[in-house]
Amino acid sequence: MNFRKNKSLFLFLLPGLILYTIFFIVPTVNALIYSFTDWDGISPEFNVVGIENYVQLVTNDSIFLKAFVNNIKFMLFVLIFQTLFSLIFAMFLIKNTKTNIFLRALYFFPTILSSVSVAFIWTFIYDPNMGMLNSVLSTLNLDFLQQNWLGNENIAIYSIAVTQVWFHTGQMLIIFVAGLQAIPKDLYEVADMEGAGRWSRFRFVTWPMIAPSATIVMAYTTIQSFKAFDLIFAMTRGGPNYSTEILATLIYSTAFRSFEFGYASAQSVLFMIVIAVITVIQFRLLRASRVQE
């Protein structure tokens, strides 16, 4: 009965479903299959090696571990600063005045640029010889703070994280503005009557009310920071000495520079698992914090 009623609707699914099956479902399943082989991507033959790739990755691959740690560093930095800045600026610019609307549009502007363009702009800012940042520091007589921002292994990943924050804060700000504007005014009136200070107003009215927006912002930010492939690839290609390599860029270079398709596929499967786990943890944590309110 259901099927008969749905019959003509199945035709609607068809064109999209065919493409989606060929170019998404099949490759995704294949990634899993490749991950159990030692295929190099070129030769017609390969061996099935079972879980050997996974064992190697988890127990004996310092570069994979480094990329994973970099990913976490990058994510935490971006998560903290992007959420903080976008929330603070959203609170500053909450009213729909002409100036505020202009400023929101200005802050949002970097979002429409391509990652490659943003990468070039920030490579110029960070350039050790004629970069904007170092010359500004020098003008301010702060020469001792000058750095090779993208060449110093210890700080390169954070330099790119700053770029990422610049890139997407304006986007997250919009989500917070929508959340803040939806808070009923009378809640603040009640808080004022009870004599609540600035902090209490935030803690007991604003924060619980924008928790849903915060969940969304933090979820997007996390996923974005795991997918920052374009930006990192265009800024450093993962170097120097793997210091800015994240999982996404490592998978690319394992597959298309070292031609270890099987091994790189195992990396992708683990990458997928990491993303799934982080997403679940994040939703749990944020849900728990909301229940407490």
Binding site: G16, A31, F229, F261, S268, I275
Partner: peptide, 20 residues
């Protein structure tokens, strides 16, 4: 089935996709 595609980062299936 369709929205599952949103959850999978492009780097996960890019190798088989390239091959295909």
């Amino acid at each position: 089935l369709f929205t599952f595609g949103m959850m999978v980062p492009a780097q996960v299936n890019m190798i088989p996709l390239y091959q295909l």
